[in-house]
Amino acid sequence: MLVDGMALLFRAYYATATSGYIRRTKSGIPTNAIYGFIRYFWDAVQNFDPTHVICCWDLGGSTFRGQQFSAYKGNRPEAPDDLVPQFSIIRDVMDSMGVPNISAEGYEADDCIGTLATQFSKDMDVMILSGDHDLLQLVSDRTTVIIMKKGHGNYKAYTPESLYEEKQLHPRQIIDVKALMGDASDNYPGVRGIGEKTAHKLVQEFGSVDGILEHLDQVSKSVRVKIEADLDMLLLSRKLAEIHCCVPVACDLDICELSLDERNVVDKFEELEMKSLCHLLGVVV
């Protein structure tokens, strides 16, 4: 199981912060996101029973996408002050559980996940845990993408069959749809005036962005004019939407086998004053 660390951490933070209560240690260190992260993470472990686990993270700072398009993710607010110190602490927590933390400078967690999924799926089945639908482009016969839905313990597992059943798209076509419609969350526009519905229809009819461009004469005039006016942005948006699967990261299987060292776990959870989580993990205190 490849875990999208930031997706879980942000979800866990906002699930509790909206109530106005932030869990803290006696010394004032915020731990609400860490506490929620472990609950989400362990619920997924119990539900899907992976033998090996890796957690992937964004490093912050510039990425190759930001170099290609300076406004990439430029609309995102700064992380809340109470969340910032938890970025490093959660990595220590995962270390205590024997789960490797993987990241790569200049790349996003998605790229690390894509690279590791490509490597491991040659020999074994891979699960990806996230709330980010961008990762659906990585679905394959050996890779299932598990999307966390609203509510604790609520998941949708996507295989090539279930993805097509729900969206009438093949995994790689997720990239083409995003290239056309853009992504407000990541702050790139795609083709102005083309929304999700039209993007889906075009990709379903012509197969891909390349297929659309090869048959522009068959596209309605209003859509054709929009594509021709924003052709450069369409091609750039496709680059931004595609997860890179050749990032310089690797992890040996024996390192990521899920096997808790109970003493390490107890020590770390006691340090963070969240001893009750030991019982959740079945660790004897």
Rank of each mutant, 00 (worst) to 15 (best):
E105W: 02
D123E: 13
F120P: 08
D261G: 04
V177C: 08
D267P: 00
H133Y: 15
T118K: 15
G74P: 05
V93S: 05
V145T: 08
V191C: 01
F37L: 01
A71S: 11
D134K: 02
A157C: 08
V285E: 14
V3F: 12
L180D: 11
V3Q: 04
C278Y: 05
T16K: 13
A157E: 08
F69G: 04
Q46P: 04
S140E: 11
I90T: 09
S162W: 06
A44R: 03
F48P: 10
I243E: 10
V99T: 04
E270W: 05
N187R: 06
L277C: 03
F48M: 08
V249W: 01
D141P: 08
I194L: 14
S19K: 13
L8Y: 12
R65T: 01
V247K: 04
E161T: 14
S259I: 00
M1E: 10
C278M: 08
K239N: 06
G151V: 09
I174L: 08
T16D: 03
G195W: 09
A79V: 00
R76D: 12
K150I: 07
S130K: 03
E228W: 05
G98A: 00
G66R: 03
L202C: 10
F120S: 09
R238N: 09
I22W: 12
A199W: 11
L180Y: 13
A7I: 08
S96P: 13
E166Y: 09
K239T: 09
C278P: 03
G282Y: 08
T16W: 02
L234G: 05
G282R: 02
Y158L: 06
R263C: 09
D183G: 06
